[in-house]
Design a protein around this nucleic acid. Structure first.
Lengths: 212, 212
DNA sequence: GTCTATAATATGATAGAC
DNA sequence: GTCTATCATATTATAGAC
């Protein structure tokens, strides 16, 4: 715990222990049933346990939901950072954006229950839970802003584009995939390429005259 | 009830009666508290009524949530249709997309509680509620596909763009505005223009070579 | 139209057995 | 580490007063 002030653990992988199974089960239920409908009894039953047993692993229901929310953002954040670190320092706009979008989408859809739960229930959890989760979300948003900012200063992104709103548009387009992506119907690499093409062309070209 | 098989009413405006107030109050609570946490008592209390009284206006809790969901899509659908009907038949890609995006965003954020509730709780309502709502959502999605399809056939949209996914990207970017848009910080017309510029340029230009 | 009273059931959390 | 039992409270829906 050197780099953050949080004492919460963020699990990395599908794992062995009851604690990990509880988190994965809770994420799946939060995603599909919502925050309020996902009772401790429901989580416990889906783990073949009883409600009281959850209190051995967690202090409260809110601690469970808090960890689920953090995992959803942290896994995507880590994946995008790792993917971009593999690029050379002089990579072009198209390369950087394609890499970041594909990494975001891949992590988003790989940890589907955690990320989808995050998107769906964030607005419904108690205020103190949302508050403690906010710094992580803000950090990830700022990471994207700092990714685009030098590209605009160097002229690769047209000066007319508002980066704050560009990130909002991008997050919306990417995160909405949790609602429609189906691995049997789509190829993730192709989806990432199409989205990157759309955004790269939209950001780098000069603004055309509209007909109205 | 001539043009649809549904018996549900879809209210058009902020209105007078208790029924309308119940729907607006329910939408606000569904948005912020979620489907399951929004009890009949909570809706009634926020209307200065008692839970039992709601049964005079609605048959069940699910009928309330069902109408809230439909209103959220129907208002946006109607607004976009009306805005596009004001355009001439030979309007260009940029004009059509800018008009449709601005109309969608304006209706989305004007009926904020209904549309935001729709996006947040759709995945959490009982299956039969979601099922009865599906045809309306599908119709609106198809409306956008049929808007873009002739533009691709005429060459205004590059042939490499997959229209189904383009609509998903667009819906994601637009609907995410329910989570970040603040009328005190942003100008809606400007947001619509920026989003339209991004998408128009991304769709009409030929695909550039990526550096990787 | 809105109320009160009620039925049958579910909730988060705790205490303590094993 | 998981269980059972329990507390105080909340839930949807109905019946019927006014």
């Amino acid at each position: 715990m050197m780099s953050t002030s949080s004492t919460k653990q963020v699990a990395e992988t599908s794992g062995a222990g009851s604690r990990q199974m509880i988190l994965e089960t809770a994420a799946r239920l939060f995603r599909h049933e919502g925050y309020s409908a996902t009772s401790l009894r429901a989580i416990a039953a889906a783990c073949d346990m009883k409600a009281g047993s959850l209190y051995y692993h967690f202090e409260s229901r809110d601690q469970i939901v808090s960890e689920v929310l953090d995992i959803g953002v942290q896994r995507v954040f880590d994946a995008v950072k790792a993917a971009l670190q593999a690029l050379t320092a002089d990579a072009a706009l198209a390369t950087i954006l394609h890499c970041a979008i594909e990494a975001h989408l891949r992590a988003l859809l790989h940890s589907h229950d955690f990320t989808s739960a995050n998107i769906r229930i964030l607005g419904q959890v108690p205020a103190h839970v949302r508050e403690s989760h906010r710094s992580l979300r803000r950090a990830y948003e700022n990471y994207w802003l700092e990714l685009l900012s030098p590209l605009q200063r160097s002229g690769q992104i047209r000066s007319g584009a508002d980066l704050q709103r560009t990130v909002y548009f991008l997050f919306g387009a990417m995160n909405w995939a949790t609602e429609w992506y189906d691995e049997r119907r789509f190829d993730l690499a192709q989806v990432a390429t199409e989205m990157a093409d759309l955004v790269v062309l939209g950001l780098q070209a000069p603004v055309a005259q509209r007909g109205d």
